[in-house]
């Protein structure tokens, strides 16, 4: 009896859904009066979307941030890009991918700890397994057999995201010279995460800076053209990058 009742409910629901679906279809295809009605609702939706979905992070330092942005822009075009270009002539792309994997693997402790802090034990487990597999079979993290052979996808978490997970907002927007765009919260996060980066504990300052520089140049060599294309399609590159950064961080915290 119960089963039968459930079957009927299910059938009615299905039918309702199917009946309503073509109706929405017809009204969408209609012209004239319903067309203008539809435009109105679309307009309303667009407006609602503006008010609800758009996260606007305060930017009280905008004049300074724009200066730092300009500085970073020149740093990229005058130094980082030419160096990365030169480097990519010497190093084949396959090798640069291995170097990228190596640096990615070295920051696994950051991801493991932040997964744990957010109670994401599965994520922590996956990251721990990835770290173990890639550090050994993957030859100190140069290769990524964890993904290729074990289908373990990276579960990226950092301390900025952990703070966000506990309800702490972005704070205001900051463009740091050399480092780039961050929010106040993510700046704190960056500092905290540095303590989990093994290279942070290198005794020699020059060695530490060289390692950091190598990571930057290698990563830039794999992404030449990305910043250029953002800049080219933007009306105001400063705002475009700011919005892309906030959208990305918001998504990372809420996933």
């Amino acid at each position: 009896m119960v089963q039968r009742k459930r079957a009927v409910t299910l059938a009615v629901l299905l039918l309702l859904q199917l009946l309503l679906y073509p109706m929405a279809d017809v009204s969408a295809g209609d012209t004239g009066k319903s067309e203008s009605l539809k435009t109105d609702t679309a307009e309303q939706q667009a407006l609602e979307e503006t008010d609800q979905d758009d996260l606007v992070v305060p930017d009280p330092l905008e004049p300074f941030n724009r200066l730092a942005f300009e500085f970073n822009d020149r740093l990229y075009f005058w130094i980082l890009k030419p160096v990365a270009r030169l480097y990519s002539y010497v190093m084949p792309e396959d090798l640069r991918m291995l170097v990228d994997n190596f640096f990615r693997n070295s920051t696994a402790p950051v991801r493991i700890v932040n997964n744990i802090l957010q109670g994401k034990l599965e994520g922590a487990g996956v990251e721990l397994a990835r770290f173990g597999i890639n550090s050994t079979i993957g030859l100190a993290g140069l290769a990524d057999p964890a993904k290729k052979d074990f289908h373990l996808e990276e579960k990226d978490e950092d301390f900025g995201q952990t703070l966000g997970y506990f309800g702490i907002g972005h704070g205001f927007y900051i463009v740091w010279p050399v480092i780039g765009p961050l929010t106040f919260r993510d700046s704190i996060g960056r500092i905290a995460d540095a303590f989990l980066d093994p290279f942070f504990y290198l005794e020699d300052d020059w060695l530490r800076i060289s390692v950091w520089g190598a990571d930057e140049i290698n990563s830039a060599s794999l992404h030449i053209g990305d910043y250029e294309s953002i800049k080219k399609s933007a009306l105001d590159p400063y705002i475009s990058i700011q919005d892309a950064y906030i959208q990305t961080r918001e998504r990372e915290v809420n996933r």
Binding site: T50, D53, D54, L235, D236, S240, Q242, Q247, T248, R251
Partner: peptide, 17 residues
């Protein structure tokens, strides 16, 4: 693209103008 909405991105630029 990589989770960043093109329309929202332009909206923030247009809004500031």
């Amino acid at each position: 693209i990589e989770g960043v909405s093109l329309v929202s991105n332009y909206r923030s630029q247009f809004r500031s103008i």
